[in-house]
Amino acid sequence: MILASRNAHKLHEVSAILGHDDITLSPGDLGDPIENDVTFAGNALIKARYVSERTGEAVIADDSGLCVDVLGGAPGVFSARWCGHHGDDEGNLQLLLNQIHDIEDKYRKAKFVCAAVYVAPGEQEIIATGSWSGRLIREPRGHGGFGYDPIFIPDGYEVTAAELTDEEKNSISHRGQAFRALVKELERQVY
């Protein structure tokens, strides 16, 4: 199966969540679709349809982001390009910290949201979602994960998502929830 992504971190995470090592990233020569939907599910479907149409294969994809309460849910679908260009994890994180630097800790609630999809020629499209609530701290901590993980402390924990082991993170994260729900629905509908 193909994961509609070029992100090696995401491939590692999704493969671990699903317990499969036969998932591959999108072929590099396909180009990139324009993710111009305003929802996580819509952008995930854009990616999966784009790759499936060009390869004729079954494709899984996701779109996810961090939704900060005090910012009205932003950066949301713009999380990966919050600082103005796609994939600059450090730039995105620093801009977000600068934007909420004067916000009291009690108002720094946030959640990660993920929509995972399955698209295959001639089959019904499947969408599943997950969310992971927590709060944002003022300085990054930890070396695991990626993106906003170093400033996100999940509810019920005292460590950031970047300080959790891969297994701990995958068992509770938004992406873990979404992909496990996707597999259940896929088993129910397709197999």
Rank of each mutant, 00 (worst) to 15 (best):
residue 83 C to N: 11
residue 74 A to S: 10
residue 77 V to I: 08
residue 70 V to Y: 13
residue 83 C to V: 07
residue 73 G to H: 09
residue 73 G to L: 07
residue 73 G to C: 08
residue 64 S to T: 08
residue 87 G to S: 06
residue 80 A to N: 04
residue 60 I to R: 02
residue 59 V to D: 02
residue 86 H to L: 06
residue 84 G to I: 03
residue 65 G to P: 00
residue 64 S to A: 07
residue 72 G to Q: 10
residue 69 D to S: 12
residue 83 C to T: 09
residue 65 G to F: 00
residue 67 C to W: 00
residue 74 A to D: 11
residue 59 V to I: 14
residue 84 G to C: 10
residue 77 V to R: 00
residue 60 I to N: 01
residue 88 D to N: 15
residue 56 G to W: 15
residue 83 C to L: 03
residue 56 G to H: 15
residue 54 R to C: 06
residue 59 V to M: 11
residue 86 H to I: 03
residue 81 R to M: 02
residue 61 A to N: 05
residue 61 A to R: 06
residue 71 L to Q: 04
residue 54 R to T: 03
residue 55 T to H: 13
residue 56 G to I: 15
residue 80 A to S: 12
residue 88 D to Q: 13
residue 73 G to D: 08
residue 63 D to F: 00
residue 67 C to T: 05
residue 66 L to W: 06
residue 71 L to D: 04
residue 81 R to Q: 11
residue 80 A to D: 04
residue 84 G to H: 15
residue 73 G to F: 07
residue 74 A to Y: 09
residue 85 H to E: 10
residue 77 V to P: 00
residue 62 D to C: 05
residue 71 L to V: 05
residue 86 H to M: 05
residue 59 V to R: 05
residue 87 G to V: 07
residue 65 G to D: 05
residue 78 F to S: 14
residue 83 C to G: 01
residue 67 C to E: 15
residue 69 D to I: 11
residue 68 V to M: 14
residue 58 A to H: 09
residue 72 G to S: 11
residue 80 A to K: 09
residue 58 A to Q: 08
residue 75 P to A: 12
residue 62 D to T: 06
residue 81 R to K: 09
residue 87 G to M: 09
residue 77 V to L: 04
residue 69 D to E: 14
residue 80 A to F: 01
residue 68 V to W: 14
residue 76 G to P: 02
residue 75 P to W: 12
residue 55 T to R: 13
residue 79 S to V: 00
